[in-house]
Write a protein that binds this DNA or RNA. Structure first.
Lengths: 117, 117
DNA sequence: CTCTTGGATCGATGGTCGTCGATCTACAAC
DNA sequence: GTTGTAGATCGACGACCATCGATCCAAGAG
């Protein structure tokens, strides 16, 4: 992912014939694409998708100890997926004694939602 | 991704104290999570995000020869990204003589959009 | 026919990802 | 103190991914 994402058209039509109408893009902002694709990437795993769904359906926060047994995966793996979601800004966590609780950051999905609408 | 995605809770609370209210999930359908995460995964790359955005903003179809010069990437790489989008069902393509045109499959994003809403 | 051009495909390469067992860190109970 | 437990982190392994140059395949043009 070390690519220079310049979006300016680089060359006009080749010598050939008109393949297309003189379509009129430049388009989306590159930084917006990067933010939204980062969120989409975090959601791009079925386990993480289900984790977010559980957290969303349980409006409050949910204890990790309730999350782990929902899947046929080891505890470190679930912890890893939660970390990915946390680093994407989709969820947040708070510790409380022995337990850790996760919750969805409500606004984290807004930009993607708007783009999809 | 060779994981058994059973969502039935596997064990009840451990001997300890109540960490959480007796929360009430099972949740989302596993097959739905797999479909939606597949779409999200395809969108989880900034190049593909921008490709879809261009195609969406240009309601009709767009020639590949217009797509390639928008990015600082080789033609095979763009072709690869378009293939990923095609296999995710997000875009379709039609050849016409020398040129190939891509367009967004309108309904492909519906399920994800609804889940996000 | 040959030449050229738009795109797809192939093969290789370096990087990233999902998974696990083992370990570590807090904290709570005894 | 010691023991037990919830969760995060580490290290390793195999699988997958983004990228490129080279090649291949059609289809027009001459």
């Amino acid at each position: 992912m070390v690519v220079d994402l310049q979006l300016a058209p680089k060359q006009k039509r080749s010598p050939g014939e008109p393949c297309c109408e003189p379509v009129a893009y430049p388009e989306i902002e590159r930084s917006q694409a990067e933010r939204m694709s980062a969120v989409a990437k975090a959601l791009g795993d079925p386990i993480r998708m289900q984790l977010v769904d559980v957290l969303r359906k349980n409006a409050g926060r949910v204890c990790v100890c309730e999350l782990v047994p929902l899947f046929d995966l080891s505890q470190p793996t679930i912890s890893h997926h939660l970390k990915v979601l946390r680093e994407a800004g989709i969820v947040g966590s708070e510790r409380e004694g022995l337990w850790a609780y996760y919750f969805v950051h409500a606004d984290s999905l807004d930009e993607l939602r708007r783009w999809l609408a």
